[in-house]
Amino acid sequence: MTKRDMRKPVVIVDDVSVTYTVYATGKRARGRLGKDGLVAKKSSLRKIRAVENVSFTVYEGETIGVIGSNGSGKSTLMRSIAGLLEVESGRVFASSRPTLLAVGAALMPNLSGEQNIMLGGMALGYTRASMTNSVDTIAQFAGLEEFIDLPMRTYSSGMAARLRFAIAQHKDHDILIIDEALAVGDKQFRNRSEARLREMRAQAGTVFLVSHSIASIRETCNRVIWLDKGKIRMDGDPIKVTQAYKEYMDSISTSPEH
């Protein structure tokens, strides 16, 4: 926070760390299957640091790309920015509550797509009446008209992600975080959603895009953050950061130990 930017900040991430506490079985899958192999020795609490002392400020009009290898803490960081995950230390400030779109399980697996649209919209704060009017539009956006009366548990992960994106895009968000959610759709859907994203950005919205696709990051973002083992490794110009990231990835994939 030494140099004060004259631009208007939208999101401030201040020294955020997130630690997961998980139960470790104390036994490795490939461990001996001897007398104690099948019996978990001691289940112990294990702390995993997913995000470590991350700080950055996002200014109005920025579209932030977030890159990093699997397990680098991207999704964890995004979920804490969205307020869906409690941080261990540090703070997040934002001009309005960010919305996260991520690939994941169905909202309510046993309910139909249509019912999921209704409930999802109402959880976002819409009234029942307005959702009744919007169900068809949302189903259409997701391209799921024929499947809309099937339980969501029967959807493929791509279909589920399309539905979730379609529900979320129904609302105008000032701050939107997209975690790989667009990667699963087909080309048509991607075009539709990218158009919608451009529209949201034009309304002075801030977008975070987590992706493994360097091309789509370069295309849509004007700033890129590279996370590595829970820490920021680089933050800045998209071309420079993605270039460095690519070189780094190439170097580890050709190194003899991998």
Binding site: M1, P9, V11, I12, V92, F93, A94, S95, R97
Partner: peptide
Amino acid sequence: MADTIDEYAGEHGLRRIGT
């Protein structure tokens, strides 16, 4: 330092998230 971030955030109408 923490205070300056609080002030800076408050100045621009930012609220804490996750509380």
